[in-house]
Write a protein that binds this DNA or RNA. Structure first.
Lengths: 191, 191
DNA sequence: TGACAGTATATAATTTTGATATATATACAA
DNA sequence: TTGTATATATATCAAAATTATATACTGTCA
């Protein structure tokens, strides 16, 4: 649902074609959003039908491939964008991640196995942290809003790695008994 | 995809029916996962067909409504669960949130409008923080893994509210010129 | 008595994701 | 030169997830 508005937002800057929009989203919203073609092209099509955008130009690709379809935002599109921009969110975000789901069930595995997976996770997020701090300067030049979101990404990364390391430590320090307890205590009747 | 494994994990503790599984997921994974009936019941059906779970019993509801379908995990189900539990994640999580998407485009709105929405966000997350810290004790009793994820939820909450407040301050302190700059600088050619 | 919340399963419609198809050009190495 | 990888560019399909709604019965509270 937000995809449409991200597209409308980007078309405020200048006319773009699909592939270009995807590139922009990856570069500017990479911290908190991804987009895929299966979502992008059908949306461009339906948005055109709804009158939010128009096909401004079709020109051959600079470097092989199909023609570039350049889209422009319409007055209706601007209107829809503004009302979205001023709307309020109803539910807080959740840290939806397959790893955290798995983590909950680590009591069914060995401590060694759990630590192995956590180590992999730490490595992954430390690499991401390095990448993100390296890109911070570039994002800073994009104005305060892009900068602030980039900084949030870095802060989250820091906090998460810290948590992963603490979890690792506590799992190794805590006895296997404690791990077994997870299994038992979830069996307690619901309150 | 992880839904299946969450179900398999819960069925390790004891046999459950769909409605009960949803309740457990909300109570134990509420920080990082939600489930809905449109996902749950079709999954239970397909998992039964795949031989991961079996229908252990059908009994009338305690309090009106349709019969309870009690499901049990099979040997195949346990096997599938273990190999999932030991698998490694390939990509780090993203803070996918419609508010953050909107935040990026706040340069197109007034500072007052931006602050208004941020204030709403702060209120929402402060309330969530209160709820989460109140539930911490209950989660602690569920063993180290459930406890650690609950603590992560609280830590994230703290960090996020702190970031929101800083963002609010910087938007109010920074001139409107700076806000306009977002608009301009996003127009810079891609590197 | 009427509204609302809780127990319980189920599905339809829509949206999102992940993967793949198609087409061309460039760069680089074997 | 031949193959491979990467980049540009649009498009669609299958699978999965989300949202909303239907059905049906009970208990509680005003």
């Amino acid at each position: 649902m937000s995809v449409k508005y991200a597209i409308l937002g980007l078309l405020h800057y200048r006319n773009m074609h699909g592939y270009e929009i995807k590139g922009h989203i990856e570069r500017h919203f990479g911290h908190m959003w991804t987009i895929n073609y299966g979502q992008l092209y059908p949306n461009l099509k339906s948005m055109q039908e709804e009158g939010l955008i128009t096909l401004a130009d079709v020109s051959p690709s600079d470097l092989g491939g199909p023609h570039k379809k350049l889209y422009a935002i319409t007055a209706n599109g601007r209107e829809a964008f503004v009302s979205w921009l001023e709307s309020e969110d109803i539910s807080p975000m959740v840290l939806r991640d397959p790893f955290l789901m798995r983590f909950i069930f680590f009591g069914f595995s060995s401590k060694e196995q759990a630590v192995k997976i956590i180590d992999h996770q730490i490595k992954m997020y430390e690499e991401q942290y390095t990448r993100r701090t390296q890109h911070l300067e570039r994002w800073r030049r994009r104005g305060p809003y892009v900068r602030l979101v980039a900084e949030l990404g870095v802060e989250f990364n820091q906090m998460y790695v810290k948590w992963l390391k603490r979890a690792r430590r506590e799992i190794l320090d805590g006895g296997a008994d404690e791990a077994k307890a997870t299994r038992m205590e979830l069996l307690l009747p619901e309150e």
